[in-house]
Simulated assay, not measured.
Amino acid sequence: MKLMILGATGAVGSQVLDQACQDGRFETIVAPTRRPLGSPGKAHNPITPFDLPLPPADWWAVDAVICCLGTTLKQAGSKQAFYRVDHDLVLACAEQARAAGASVFVLNSALGANPKSRSFYLRTKGEVESAVARMGFERVVLARPSLIDAEREDNRPAEKLGLMASRLLAPLIPKRYHPVSAGAIAATLLREVTGGPGVITLASEQLGHD
Score class of each variant (00 low, 15 high):
D63R: 02
H209P: 10
Q75P: 08
S166G: 15
H209I: 13
D63C: 04
A76G: 14
Q80D: 11
G136N: 04
A102Y: 02
T71M: 04
R118Q: 09
G136C: 02
T48W: 11
T71A: 03
I148E: 09
Y177G: 09
K74H: 11
G41N: 08
F105E: 00
I148S: 06
G112M: 11
L107R: 03
Y121D: 05
W59F: 10
A57S: 12
S39Y: 01
A187S: 14
F137W: 05
T124P: 09
C68D: 02
A158P: 00
V85K: 00
A43P: 06
Q22N: 11
K79R: 15
F105C: 00
A113I: 08
V141N: 04
T28Q: 10
V140Y: 01
V12N: 05
A133P: 11
K79P: 05
Q206A: 13
C93E: 01
L163M: 10
A182L: 11
G162I: 09
W59Q: 03
I185R: 07
F50G: 03
R134T: 14
P174H: 07
N155Y: 14
A94E: 03
G136P: 03
A92M: 01
A184L: 08
P53F: 06
D154E: 14
I200T: 12
C21V: 12
V12C: 02
L189I: 12
Q96K: 13
Q15R: 13
A99Q: 11
A81N: 13
L161Q: 11
P197L: 09
R144M: 08
F137N: 07
G41T: 13
T72I: 11
S146P: 08
Q96V: 02
Y83H: 15
A133F: 07
L3C: 00
L17Q: 01
I29H: 04
K125I: 01
A57Y: 07
D23G: 06
Q75D: 03
A143W: 08
F26W: 14
L161K: 07
S181I: 05
F105Q: 02
R152Y: 03
F120Y: 13
V62T: 06
D23E: 12
S14F: 06
G38K: 13
R35V: 06
G183M: 12
D210A: 10
P49K: 12
G70P: 12
G13Q: 04
R123F: 04
G126W: 08
S103A: 15
D51W: 08
R98I: 04
L54W: 01
K175W: 05
A61V: 03
D149V: 05
S204H: 06
D23S: 07
P197Q: 12
R144E: 09
V90S: 02
G101L: 04
H44M: 13
V199G: 06
A76H: 10
A113E: 09
G195A: 09
I148R: 12
L172S: 08
N45K: 01
A100N: 04
Q75V: 14
D63A: 03
L189A: 04
A97L: 01
A43M: 01
V106I: 15
P55Q: 09
S117G: 00
H209S: 10
A20S: 09
M135E: 03
